[in-house]
Computed example of a mutant assay.
Amino acid sequence: MSRRLVLLLALTCAVGVGNIYFPQAISPLIAAGLHESPDSASLVVTATQIGYTAGIFLLVPLGDRLPHRPFLVTLLALAGVGLLAAGCAPALPALVAAGAFVGVTTVAAQLVAPLAAGLVAADRRGAVMGTLLSGSIGGMLLARTFSGTLGEWLGWRAPYLVAAVVVLLLATVLAHALPVGTPSSRQPYRALLAEPLRLLRGEPELRRSCLYQATVFAGFSAVWTCLTFLLTGPAYGLGAQAVGMLALVGAATMVCTPFAGRLVDRIGPDPVNLVCMLGVLGSAAVLAVGARGGALGLAALVLGTLLLDIAMQCGMVANQARVFALRADARSRLNTAYMTCAYLGGSGGSWVGVRVYGQAGWRGVCALVAFLAALALARHVVALYGRTPRCDESPATSRH
């Protein structure tokens, strides 16, 4: 792949992922604008994430069956239409439905990753995955900042309408610049849908990668969904724009993920996963200090969210490198299984996080993050040290 193509694919990831995350920063504005409670307005975030999970499960397997260029362009065009509908929604139910439709159709990043993995050598796969993930992170961060700032200035509808224009422009560019590609499968759609479940049953490495990302991403989503309530609540009294500005701190992650990808290429994904899980546990402890409010609490939120972002995203590089190495002819279906589990975890984390925040406050959310990270870490320790070598197998080859 040329560097220009890598950058274009990274931009596609940024736009696709940004559509999922920008509603998080304007949830209080939606609540005020539509005269709904904050809990009700948070359904927009949850519906978008659930729609994204459904899109991964229902549409991403077709990446092994259909030419990538027309498929990506069509999905982006539909996402643009959904964003326009959301920006014009007259009430919360219509906005929730439009958000779910946007989630289903904005799965471009999950089609780009398998496409790129098939165009590079195995010893460069981690580095390219890290670059694409940097694009996704940039989209996530800029989307929160963009929506929080624009929403405070022009109202909650403006971010949806501007995002629609950006998505439709990108679809036009991709229609001319993206290579068509050759599908790797001729299986019918029903078989493609069933294949990720078969892969989950048959590939232990896929199952543990899914568990790692689902648990860590659940904690990540809980933090970012509830962070809006904390910053706009009595402890800090800030506006929605503050959430977007805080998200910019995570820009350092864009530098870390390519480095993590090169590290995965050199030493493998397991050591990288171990460090990332310990990082998530550490971030939970730091974030808990944020409940105190004031300058110290805000500093803890900045440091804790940065550590959480880096750990979650670098862990994703390691997990995807492990998953894409399993079967070259089924990368879209492998990615379907992996990302469906990840976003089910994220959707569940957002939903549970709001409930925990209502009952136990910010410290309860931090305890939830620590618990989920501990689950992933326990499974990883079993994977690394819990297998007994056979008598014909050396200790080095017995480890995953």
Rank of each mutant, 00 (worst) to 15 (best):
W224C: 07
S347P: 07
V81Y: 02
L368M: 15
V216L: 14
G51C: 00
A127W: 06
A25H: 04
S283K: 08
A143Q: 01
Y212A: 10
G358Q: 13
P70V: 01
A94L: 12
G130Q: 10
G181L: 08
V6W: 13
R292Q: 09
S283N: 10
V286F: 08
M339G: 09
A77F: 01
A240K: 04
A79K: 00
R3F: 11
G261V: 14
G87M: 09
L43A: 06
G261W: 14
G82M: 02
A98F: 04
A98K: 05
G282E: 11
A10Q: 13
M277T: 09
L142R: 01
F217L: 12
L278Y: 11
R331M: 13
R198I: 00
R208V: 14
A251L: 15
A383L: 13
F259K: 14
G118D: 14
I310K: 08
L278H: 08
A143C: 02
L263R: 15
V165S: 08
I50S: 00
D64V: 02
Q313V: 11
P159I: 06
L375G: 11
Y189W: 06
A177C: 06
M312L: 15
A300W: 04
G148V: 03
L92W: 02
L248T: 12
R201A: 13
V280I: 14
F57M: 02
A342I: 10
P269H: 09
L11E: 06
A383N: 08
R190W: 06
A311I: 12
A100S: 04
L248W: 09
T336Q: 03
A122I: 03
G130H: 12
R327A: 14
A330Q: 13
F259R: 15
Y160P: 04
V96Y: 02
T225D: 09
M316G: 12
M254H: 07
M339A: 13
L230Q: 08
I30F: 07
R65K: 05
F146D: 01
G304W: 08
